[in-house]
Computed example of a mutant assay.
Amino acid sequence: MQRLTSWLAVLLLFVSAAASAQTQLSETEEGERWFNLMADALNELNFEASFVHVQGDRIEPYQWVHGVDENGRQFEWLSQMNGPGFRALRIDDVVSHFHPAATSYSLNSNAVSTLIPSAFNQPFVNVSKYYRAVAVGGARILDRKAQHIRLVSRDNQRYGFSIWVDRDNGMPLKVLMVNREGEVMEQLQLTNLSVRPVANEMVNELGKIERPPMLDKLQPHQPPRLDVAPNWSPAGFKLLKKQHHRLVIDGTPVDHYLYSDGLAEYSVYLTDDSEQQHQANISFTGPQTLYSQHNAQIMVTVVGQIPIEVAKQIASSVQ
C-alpha cells in the first residue's frame, strides 16, 4: 500500500509538472499570437490616434494617422503637437522627416519614427531569437479591453517591454520600456483611437505632400575617418549606419555608428580627443543610457536604449 501511495505521488508530481510546462507554452504562444495581431493591425488598419510619449520628465503629445489606399499603399503620418512641430510621413518604405528649424529629408525605412519600434509592424519571428513574448493577463486601457504581453530579453543584454494590445483590433494602446529591475525607462500611451473601415480623406491629402529629397542626395555619405571602430555589439543588434559628420550642437567631427535590434537602438560616437585622455569617464542611466570613456587617444561615447553594463562593454571594444 505504501509503495502504491509513493507511485501515485510521483505520478501526480509528473502530471503537475507537465501541466505547468503546457501552461507556460500556451502563454508563450499566446504572447506571440498577440504580437503578430498587433503587427497586422499596424499594417492593415485605417486609424486616427493621439498619444503621449513620456521619457523621464519630458512629456510630448503626438497625432498619429495610418491608412491603406485602394492600391494597397500604406500612408502613415506622425505630428508632434508641442514645440516647433516635427512631422514625419511614411509612404510604404520611404519616410520623410519635416523639420521647421533644420533641413528636411527622406530615407528608406519601414517605421515612421523610433517612437514606434520598427519591429512592431513585423512578424514576431524577426526578434524571437532575442526576446520571449508572454501573455500575462488582461486590463482596461483607454476604456477598451486590452491584452497585456511582455517582451523579455533572452540574454539580459537589452531592455524589456510591456505592451497592452486592443483585444478587438490588435492596436497597441500602451507601451512601456523597462529595465532589468522593472523600472519604466520610457512609455507611450494612446489617449484617443478611431478605427475606420476605409481610409479617410486625410490619407488622400498625404499623398499630395511634396516630399524632401533623399538624405544621401542632401548629404553625400562620408565614411568613418578614424582607424578604430566598435568590435562588439550585443547579439541581434545590426549596424544600420556608419558615417563621419559634425555634431549639430558644437560642430565636433565624429565617426557615428548606429545599431538596432528592431525594438531598441544605440549609437557609438568616436572622436579624436588625444589632448584630454585623462578626463574621467562619464556614466548616466536614465531614459537613454550615456557612457563615455577614453581609449588611448579616442573618446568613445555610447548613447541608447541599453543597460549601462552593455554600454561599457561596447565602449571597451573600440580598440
Results as ranks from 00 to 15, higher is better:
H294Q: 09
L206S: 06
P212S: 07
H278M: 12
D227P: 04
H294S: 08
V228K: 13
Q276A: 09
G251N: 13
T191Y: 01
P230E: 03
P223R: 12
T271Q: 15
Q187W: 03
P212E: 08
R196A: 13
L193Y: 12
D250G: 08
L218V: 04
T271Y: 02
L270P: 12
T301D: 02
V175K: 03
D272E: 14
E275A: 14
E201I: 12
T289F: 07
K208P: 02
N231G: 10
I249V: 13
A235S: 03
E265I: 00
P213H: 09
D273R: 11
Q297H: 08
G182Y: 04
R211D: 02
D250K: 09
H221D: 03
V254N: 05
G236R: 00
P220H: 03
Q288F: 12
V195Q: 00
N192E: 15
Q293A: 11
E181S: 13
M177I: 07
V268P: 08
G251P: 10
V228P: 12
N281A: 09
N231E: 12
P287D: 14
R225I: 13
E205A: 10
T301F: 01
S260K: 11
R246F: 08
L176G: 00
R180L: 12
L290V: 14
H278L: 13
Q288N: 13
L193N: 13
D261M: 02
E201K: 13
E201D: 14
P230S: 11
L226G: 07
F237T: 06
T285V: 14
L270H: 09
M177A: 07
V228E: 09
A296K: 07
N295D: 04
N295I: 11
V195N: 02
I282A: 03
A229L: 08
Q277F: 05
H221P: 01
S274A: 13
E186R: 06
F237C: 04
H245Y: 08
Y259M: 06
P287A: 15
S274G: 09
Q243V: 03
I282D: 01
S260P: 11
D272R: 15
W232E: 05
L215R: 12
T301V: 02
K241Q: 08
T271A: 11
V248M: 06
L290Q: 05
K241G: 00
T252S: 11
M214Q: 07
H256C: 01
I282T: 06
D250E: 08
M177L: 13
V248P: 01
V195A: 00
F284L: 15
S267R: 10
P287M: 10
R211M: 10
H294Y: 12
Y269E: 05
I209M: 10
K174W: 05
E201R: 15
N295L: 05
P253Y: 02
F237M: 03
G182K: 04
Q187H: 04
M214K: 08
Q288Y: 11
V184E: 07
L190V: 01
E186D: 12
L290S: 10
P223I: 09
V254L: 09
V228R: 14
P172I: 03
V302S: 03
K217L: 06
E265T: 05
M299T: 11
A199W: 09
V178N: 11
H256T: 04
S233D: 02
G251M: 13
V254D: 04
E183P: 00
W232V: 06
R246V: 11
M299R: 15
M185K: 15
